[in-house]
Amino acid sequence: MNAPTRTGVPFSFGRLLVVAQNTFLEAVRQKLFALLLLLAIGLGASAQLFREFNFGSSELKFIADFGFGAMIFFGSTLTIAATAQLFFSEIENRTALTILAKPIWRTEFIFGKFLGVFAVVGVFCALTTLLLAGLLFARESALMEAHPEAFEHGRIIHYADVFVAGGLQWLKFGVLAAFTLLVASYSNTNLFTVIMGFFVLVVCHLQYLARDAYAQVASVPLRLLVRLLGYVFPNFQVFNVADQVGMGAGLNHLMALRIGGYGLAYIAIIGVLAVYSFRNREI
């Protein structure tokens, strides 16, 4: 046989970014962002609703709760749906064939896909957080005039915390996107991936219950299984610091950093696992 005519192809962050950019563009042109507009209208309307109840300064807590609640709900849905859709559109339309038939590493393809989805969800989180912070600021300013006694120590909302909470949600969605991509790298259908994505979302939110229950389980094998479950799935509850916004004491920023590190580490690990699984996938 002939001697090789070329040397190896090094990993390229540039190629990874090209895939990411294209994934982002696809999401934008599929009008996924129309969802954001709907959400913005929903948020604005819900803020108006709370005025009806005359909650006083506590109205801010309601706005923050509903704002972050909407972000968690719509963000989780967007993350799972966008990851599965943007991955399977490549497989089903056979565009994955044309890309992977080029001199590109599968690692670049998978992380490119991830980065594209992560950027989409990032824009979603940034817009929602900005909108929420704007709503809170406007309403707080109005309430400060109406009830100065409730704001004797100044503003109640720590606005930096609103952005930290939004950022941590983004990281959580990043872990969820990586998990969905891992499932997609095994799965043959979009539907199965979406269902499994939601399953992972629920399990990761409830894994703390398994940890809590561990000590009370009498049967040893079951106890081991419960313990294993507690380790296999990341704890998504730890990212939900938004509950603390507008409740007096501000967030502990060292704690937020730890949670951020936890999210980033999981994104890297699950991303590598998705690459491992996708490497063996027959396209």
């Binding site: 070329r6 040397t7 044309t98 080029k102």
Partner: peptide
């Protein structure tokens, strides 16, 4: 071209048109 086909560099000099391709419509 002498490079095992599972290696990425085997595709440096290859162009491929799949059957009935659907490209990025957008």
């Amino acid at each position: 071209f002498g490079v095992p086909s599972h290696q990425v560099d085997s595709r440096l000099n290859v162009g491929y048109l799949p059957e009935a391709p659907y490209f990025y419509r957008y």
